[in-house]
Design a protein around this nucleic acid. Structure first.
Lengths: 235, 235
DNA sequence: CGACCATTTGATATGGATCAAGCGATGTGG
DNA sequence: CCACATCGCTTGATCCATATCAAATGGTCG
């Protein structure tokens, strides 16, 4: 796959989850998956590569994206610890995946999971549910993209805040360029919208990567529509 | 549901498909579904209504959309004859559905299909596959929305042309406003892009609803990236 | 300390929205 | 059957949000 990929010292993580889990997919990944580490900006897989593996994020952040002809890039999603990605509808990946920060993943062969799903309805249902999550996310993404720059940035912040339920402070793992490519804006516009929100006391920016939501209802008001994006966390 | 809905004279359509079909979902719908007619602009279901039915388009065109707070509207998809819609990930519809033209649908209870899926893996797989199609479509939609107005319109025309494999002439069932709401543009911009394409001899517009693709490769060039959207036809 | 990279800030350009009017087809009533 | 109202679409003029181009700032690492 890539020169950056290397197997961990295979000291299996202690099974903190019950052996007969209500989440058989999660257990399967935990028990049969291989831990792997990727340094910052390493490629995990590339668009049009065969989709032979599923990935679960243990630590770090991953982006999936599509590179466009004109050099632009469309980021489809960010995956945080606990998220599963790489579930493809076809034989090939439709997007590329890269580590945004140093990341630890657990990797499991697709065919193992598919075989499991054939025997175990719960696994099948969970796979289907992963696709559903992706669908909901893509639909929310569409909704974001038809809004103004202000609204998109507000929506993005709320989305991230919902995924990291750690109060009102978010540590953004990704650079401005990634946010811009996710929102279909330029980094300059993203930056301006953030400083504008800061001037309005809606957020604070202790550092460029750390964002304090000082007025969530104002953000929700800006965001207007679109309801809480349930998002891609493994239940 | 709605005052417009009325059952057909229940003369079942003759089963042209083999009794033991390779598409058990399609047969189930054909055999157990109820035919219904909707006049132009009739509501089929509304956002947040319980999602108790699946729908298959027999004739006519359907749009699904979300109404936004500011009066705007985001059209998610157009469904043509043969397409199945109404498959929801949750208990409630996330979008509303309306007939764009007079439309004949076949309606089947969700729980019937779900029960069938529990026994028949093929049905389950087909349901999953419907979600996958929707996902692919939503992803293609995202890709459209980050492009220029020119590119979006070109992409839309190619998408429609791929779905109606009737040569180079498309009969658009929807008004400009629907196209605009699908592409996140205004009707004026859509109109301008079309006349611009016409002036460049890329398309012809015998009537406002009828579009002749005179130079598909030029359209593909404008569209640039994004690969053929496989789209939502029932296999 | 100095180089580098990410981010912010500023000045200007531009694509698409908005506002407004005209046009053509369709349907209705006199 | 024609005149007129209506509706969907196109065309034109102007405005504005965001892109683009350019430079300054700040933070990080050798």
């Amino acid at each position: 796959m890539d020169r950056f990929i290397r197997r961990e010292n295979t000291g299996r993580t202690p099974a903190t989850e019950p052996r007969v889990s209500t989440y058989p997919l999660a257990s399967a990944i935990a028990e049969m998956g291989a831990p792997m580490s990727f340094p910052r900006d390493a490629e995990i897989y590339r668009e049009s590569n065969p989709a032979n593996y599923l990935y679960k994020v243990i630590s770090g952040t991953v982006r999936t994206f599509k590179a466009l002809s004109n050099g632009r890039r469309q980021i489809r999603a960010f995956y945080l610890p606990g998220d599963i990605f790489g579930v493809e509808t076809g034989e090939k990946h439709a997007f590329s995946a890269e580590a945004i920060t140093d990341a630890k993943l657990v990797v499991i062969e697709r065919k193992v999971v598919v075989a499991l799903a054939a025997r175990d309805n719960d696994v099948a249902r969970q796979l289907w549910s992963l696709t559903s999550r992706e669908l909901r996310h893509a639909q929310d993404h569409v909704l974001l993209l038809i809004q103004s720059a202000q609204e998109r940035v507000a929506g993005f912040l709320l989305e991230m805040a919902n995924r990291v339920p750690a109060g009102n402070e978010i540590e953004l793992p990704m650079p401005r360029q990634d946010i811009a490519d996710y929102l279909g804006l330029t980094i300059e516009t993203v930056s301006r919208m953030l400083t504008h929100l800061e001037k309005g006391a809606t957020i604070a920016l202790p550092t460029s990567r750390r964002i304090v939501l000082r007025n969530r209802s104002a953000l929700n008001r800006i965001n207007g529509e679109s309801g809480a994006p349930l998002y891609l966390t493994t239940s």
